[in-house]
Amino acid sequence: MGNWSMFTWCFCFAVTLIILIVELGGLQARFPLSWRNFPITYACYAALFCLSASIIYPTTYVQFLSHGRSRDHAIAATTFSCIACLAYATEVAWTRARPGEITGYMATVPGLLKVLETFVACVIFAFISNPYLYQHQPALEWCVAVYSICFILAAVAILLNLGDCTNMLPIPFPSFLSGLALLSVLFYATALVIWPLYQFNEKYGGQPRRSMDVSCSNRHTYYVCAWDRRLAVAILTAINLLAYVADLVYSARLVFVRV
């Protein structure tokens, strides 16, 4: 967990430094990605990554350190991680598109929702990294397929915008976004029903109570037991479904509403 947090902070520092160099050197035209879309996309990801580090680092690492300089340094790192998260979130709020403003897609609400959807999917993948959680039931394997397919589709939409390749699609890009959002909503709706049903219903081999899971009886500093993982995935599935529903509403307006 400490390594994950360190990776997050180093990655955010390195990319922010690159953005500063490009801005100060006036090299936006030579940058390989769309400069209208890249900075806010990165800022949104950085805010989410720093938020995760600000939660994970103190709860799974700092509280188990003995009192001393190392603990004080870790607390200071957590504090600055929270400040960085607020700074990135402020940048996203400040640079996002306003009504009537012409800007890149990633600065709009649907674009930012795409970032949230892919990030939540990545967290889901972290929780289901143990195949034991889903390989015993084909229905649960379908849920994993849903998470993977929707993640790939959202990532493709983001990459098309970052590379300014939206005109390469055989259909209009707004129609592609609406179809993508509708498909994802339908897929996630099935996962929201199937995952809790097969994980927490005894009739389908699930465990309705945490005490029934033997792996949850042993406390380990860096270990999240299987039942907690199942519950986290169920909650994250609901969060991503809400994000996709909001994405569908905004994307549909791009197609059917004429301003």
Rank of each mutant, 00 (worst) to 15 (best):
A121P: 01
Q63F: 06
Y61L: 06
W142A: 08
C122L: 12
A238W: 02
F256Y: 15
N161C: 15
G111D: 00
L162H: 00
A74M: 04
I235S: 02
G26S: 11
A139I: 04
P208D: 03
K114P: 09
E202W: 11
R210D: 06
P99I: 07
F127D: 12
Q199M: 13
A121T: 06
W9M: 12
E91S: 05
L33A: 08
L27Y: 11
A243T: 02
F38T: 06
N37A: 05
C50T: 08
Y204V: 05
L133Q: 07
T60H: 14
T79A: 14
F64A: 12
C150A: 04
L160Q: 09
C50P: 01
Q28D: 10
H220I: 10
Y105K: 08
A189I: 03
L159D: 14
C150W: 03
F49E: 04
P110R: 06
D72N: 13
P196L: 01
H67C: 15
Y45F: 13
T95G: 06
T103K: 07
G205F: 14
C44M: 15
Y204S: 08
L169W: 07
L153I: 15
N161H: 11
N37W: 09
L17N: 13
A53G: 00
L140N: 06
Q207F: 11
Q137C: 05
F173G: 04
V92D: 08
T8M: 03
W4Y: 07
Q63C: 08
D228C: 09
A29N: 13
G111I: 10
T60R: 05
L186D: 10
A77I: 05
C82M: 13
T79F: 09
S175P: 01
S175K: 11
A97E: 14
P32L: 02
L160E: 07
V156Y: 07
V115L: 11
S52M: 15
C165R: 14
Y223S: 04
N167T: 11
F151Y: 05
I124G: 08
R258M: 02
V15S: 00
Y198D: 03
G111L: 09
C150E: 07
V22C: 12
I21Y: 08
Y188S: 03
Y250R: 09
A154H: 08
F176W: 07
I235W: 02
L254I: 10
C216D: 12
A189M: 07
I158Q: 07
I21D: 11
L113M: 05
V193S: 01
I40W: 03
K203H: 03
F176Y: 13
L248I: 06
W195V: 00
W195Y: 09
G205N: 15
Q199K: 12
T8G: 11
L113Y: 00
F127V: 00
I128R: 03
R71D: 13
G25L: 10
T95C: 10
V214D: 10
L159V: 15
Q207Y: 04
S148Q: 07
L159W: 13
Y222I: 00
P131T: 06
L86M: 07
M168F: 01
V120W: 05
D164R: 12
D213S: 13
M106R: 10
F256C: 05
I128A: 08
I239K: 07
S129L: 04
L153K: 15
M168H: 12
Y57L: 08
Y223G: 04
S70W: 15
R98E: 03
N3A: 14
T59Y: 12
L112N: 01
W142E: 09
I40T: 03
I149M: 09
